[in-house]
């Protein structure tokens, strides 16, 4: 597996950005400064970053309710994201989407999705566009282990195989569907996807390099007309389903043990393939990230809420009827 020094630094920067961004968000949320529901991605950062590292803005992703990491990995601007998560006028979605519906069309980010299993049919459609136009783009659906049981996911797997779509089913098996521990053994999800007739593999989702290797192959297969691929990235959900979930349903000792082994960041840095990343470079990246996040929050808290008339805008592009 080849990774250029620039990509290596990008990979670290993106994973670290997701981590710092969300930890700061969590703290602000706990102080009541952010509205709505937020779902934290911690310890799954290697998946999103490995998945999107070789994508361009012409490639598509459809995300989930736990989508901040996907956004950052796909290149969404931190400040515009924060403005959206705080539901401000200048947010990516003018404050009308918030955390669970954040999207950035200019980056090929087709939306977080508050409907579990809602994204894969949309990603299949984006893959159909790529196939129809023959432009070599790929489309990826992020799918949780909970969503893997939705009919929409099965329908999308099947359609992707039947139409040989350039699509990647990126399962993030964090072993918890909301408050319920997955009864499926690791690997069952990939097995199921594979049964539809596509290459499917199980990868350690905390291992950036293993993930990147699998994603490169899947993306290349899609670009070259080889059809869909499924990857089951096995990981652990660090926090609750949503921020504020006390997780009374989880065994603390088990959780501590999982947390200790599933952090992708130290693992990445300890890997010999990351040796090119010097301590100095890391410190520089870390400082820039914190600065960007600080600045983002500063701008966000000073930003305006949408004006009342925005309730009625962007329902349609053009509509000859009444909205009120």
């Amino acid at each position: 597996m080849d990774i250029s020094p620039e990509k290596l630094a990008d990979a670290y920067r993106l994973m670290k950005t997701i981590r710092e961004f969300e930890e700061r968000m969590r703290s602000e949320y706990q102080q009541g400064k952010l509205p709505g529901f937020i779902h934290i991605y911690r310890n799954q950062e290697a998946i999103a970053v490995a998945a999107c590292l070789d994508m361009t803005n012409e490639d598509y992703i459809a995300s989930t309710h736990r989508g901040h990491g996907h956004c950052i990995a796909k290149g969404c601007e931190i400040e515009a994201m924060l403005l959206e998560l705080a539901c401000k006028e200048d947010g990516l979605c003018n404050g009308k989407g918030g955390s669970m519906h954040i999207a950035d069309m200019s980056k090929g980010m087709l939306g977080a999705n508050a409907i579990v299993g809602g994204g894969p049919p949309i990603a299949a459609g984006a893959a159909l566009t790529a196939k129809t136009l023959g432009n070599g783009a790929v489309s990826m659906a992020f799918i949780g282990d909970g969503a893997s049981d939705q009919g929409t996911v099965a329908e999308s797997l099947n359609l992707a195989v039947v139409l040989q779509l350039p699509m990647i089913f990126m399962y993030e098996n964090n072993r918890y569907a909301e408050f319920t521990k997955s009864p499926k053994p690791d690997g069952r999800i990939a097995e199921r996807a594979g049964a539809f007739g596509m290459p499917a593999e199980v990868v350690d989702g905390s291992d950036f390099f293993a993930m990147y290797d699998a994603c490169q192959r899947a993306i290349m297969r899609g670009r070259e007309g080889g059809g869909p691929t499924a990857i089951e990235a096995v990981c652990n959900r660090y926090y609750g389903h949503f921020e504020g979930d006390a997780q009374a349903y989880r065994n603390q000792a088990e959780l501590d043990a999982e947390r200790a082994v599933s952090d992708p960041l130290p693992r990445f840095l300890a890997d010999p393939r990351a040796a090119a990343l010097t301590e100095e470079k890391i410190a520089e990246i870390n400082a820039a990230i914190l600065e960007e996040i600080d600045r983002g929050f500063e701008v966000t808290y000073a930003a305006a809420d949408p004006t009342p008339d925005k309730l009625y805008t962007d329902v349609y592009i053009h509509y000859e009827g009444r909205l009120q």
Binding site: M105, G125, A126, T129, T152, S156, N158
Partner: peptide
């Protein structure tokens, strides 16, 4: 490639049509 027979899979038909529309086709 422009007149596409699908399996009996309404969520995928409608959802993929939406996703294709979102990304530049007019399905």
């Amino acid at each position: 490639h422009r007149v596409i027979d699908t399996p009996i899979t309404e969520s995928a038909i409608v959802g993929a049509a939406g996703g294709a529309a979102l990304t530049g086709l007019r399905p």
